[in-house]
Design a protein around this nucleic acid. Structure first.
Lengths: 220, 220
DNA sequence: AACAGAATAAAACAATTGTTTGAATTGAGC
DNA sequence: GCTCAATTCAAACAATTGTTTTATTCTGTT
């Protein structure tokens, strides 16, 4: 029941990840998934109860493999130079989101993650607690280390959001980015360049926030 | 034919904008739209040919009204201090995306824009040329002014992407942001604060990029 | 008043959806 | 070799979808 034949259930999960990613929950039909996985339609309901059950397991597996393959520390020791830890964090995000070994960007399962951010499914709640919240805590700790003191959440959290926002936006809008600025759409070849840009930009942004009194009532 | 009764067609457009925004193209059924607009189902096909035709007109109207109500210059003169022009640009993005007078954020038509960025519909191409590309050109011009010289597109364009990325991310992921950092989800009340944060952060980022040699092969 | 074309309405259409049914097949364990 | 549960399969189900059809009402012009 919990450990079925290694073939059918796993094949369904793989095909479903691909197709849910490309087309979204609604457009991905179980007939299409079944055809891609080369299984009978009823096998999906048999193994996963219903379409939502299948989606939930796909989501969990996608996050698990992504964060396992590209951990946010990039195997950097926890006491490394904080700016390098930020660099590793950003690089991990880019590789996790965009690379073929990761979620494959907008052409693959990256789209599935983007869609969950846009409007979360019921299954997303679990993923949020297990992966995203610890991920956020790590980033805020890095930012505090870079600032060399803790300026309070009203500065640190928006910084974290800005860092993550840049990374996600590349994954999210790469179709439009490609049409507007062809060289800056994320590809396997320029992930390092893009990640380093976001890193440098963010270091400047964090430094600026550190030195300003924010929120401020008056405009400079 | 082109200028029908001011009631029916307009009512369909309004209801469709609302419902397409909330539920996406696929989940928004014409029956639901017809019911919300209080018109007969067939009226939609009569006035807009088919569902795709309706969606195309909705998209065009949403962008037109959004950019008209909140122009990226915020009525600032073109020769104003470049940093203030950046502030106006970012503020316009936040208000356009998030405010009730604009696209109403993730609860309203903002979701529709986000979905188009994620995977563009055929109707998006026109919107891209008419609204988004000029918008990008304006931002890059502001960035060049801030840097006081033109460091070339390999620096300016990623800066523009980082600025826009932060703004869009707040619109895009506000559901998740709210769950992770409650005070930083965009609401009508804190748009100014968030916009100013992104502004300060971006000024720091732009300054940092200006002073670095990028792209660089070596890591600092 | 009479007509023509635009606009609205109710009903039906064909296609596709997720799910279920019930029979056939497989594969260990005794 | 038999049994029984787990699995797979083909077929059918009910519900929902976008669209079309046909008839009716409205509106402005002669």
């Amino acid at each position: 029941m919990t450990d079925p034949s290694p073939s059918t259930k796993k094949r369904i999960l793989d095909a479903a990840g691909e197709i849910f990613g490309k087309m979204g929950f609604k457009d991905a039909t179980i007939r299409r998934i079944a055809m891609a996985a080369e299984v009978n339609i009823a096998a999906i309901n048999y193994h996963f109860r219903d379409k939502e059950g299948l989606y939930g397991e796909v989501l969990e597996e996608v996050f698990r493999t992504g964060f396992t393959r590209f951990p946010a520390t990039m195997d950097l020791p926890a006491d490394a130079e904080p700016r390098e830890r930020l660099r590793a964090f950003i690089r991990a995000m880019f590789y996790r989101l965009q690379s073929g070994e990761g979620w494959g960007g907008i052409a693959g399962k990256g789209k599935l993650i983007a869609r969950e951010l846009l409007d979360p499914s019921p299954a997303f709640e679990a993923v949020l607690d297990r992966y995203i919240k610890p991920h956020k805590d790590l980033l805020t700790a890095i930012i505090v280390d870079i600032m060399q003191f803790n300026p309070g959440p009203e500065k640190v959290l928006p910084c974290a959001i800005s860092v993550i926002g840049q990374c996600i936006y590349y994954a999210f809008a790469s179709a439009v980015i490609g049409k507007i600025s062809a060289g800056d759409a994320p590809t396997e070849a320029n992930l390092d360049r893009l990640a380093d840009f976001v890193w440098l930009f963010s270091l400047g942004g964090i430094e600026a926030i550190k030195q300003t009194n924010f929120p401020a009532k008056d405009s400079p």
